[in-house]
Amino acid sequence: MALVRINGLHKHFGSNHVLKGIDLDIEEGQVIALIGRSGSGKSTLLRTINGLETFEQGEIEVDGEHLHPRDTDLRALRQKVGMIFQQFNLFPHLSVGRNVMLATQVVKKIGEKEAEDIARTMLLKVGLLEKFDAYPDQLSGGQQQRVAIARALAMQPRVLLCDEITSALDPELVNEVLAVVKTLAAEGMTLIMVTHEMRFAREVGDKLVFMHHGRIHESGDPQQLFANPQTPELANFIGSIN
């Protein structure tokens, strides 16, 4: 039984048909790398999985929570799906600790003390425990992104969505974030990543999904696909980034 099931997903932005029937099953513990050119629909697909984008047709299921077109009650689903953004999106008016604690207290109604313990555990995991009382604007981009990961983990999601999480970082800060993601993958976290880090996708990914013109054009084992792409579009794409 797949943890995430996506069936026949269609989405339009106005007259632009951006997702043209996506079917994708993701097993627990899998690391999925979503790749493709900009405009291929990969970020949109990722954002439909936790309801940040609506869709017109199809169905998404995450760990027994069903999401249908025009659903508005997303609370149960979103407690199972964490998300990390390109721009970190930490809450600038809250300390690092409070950033991580907020949703556990507000959504899960966990008490102050226990929420703080959870936050400290998660910050320790991303190597930033000493920044508990700092504010986001006192941190580097890489540190902010690691806090964002700790914030998502504090809700104990079943799946973590990563939307180009290293694209806004200076090159020397990329590795500290990828190292955290690698640890999560090793611990068995289910990850769906839109990424331009092809080397990382090949090393850590269990499955590569190549999107092209709103469809899954090709998917499979990353090592094999990189070495031996089956379609000219993927070959072309791999050639253009190397």
Partner: peptide, 15 residues
Amino acid sequence: GQWEASASLALTHFE
């Protein structure tokens, strides 16, 4: 991004 980050943490509109 502040709306999206808080939405993805399952906060309601009011929260």
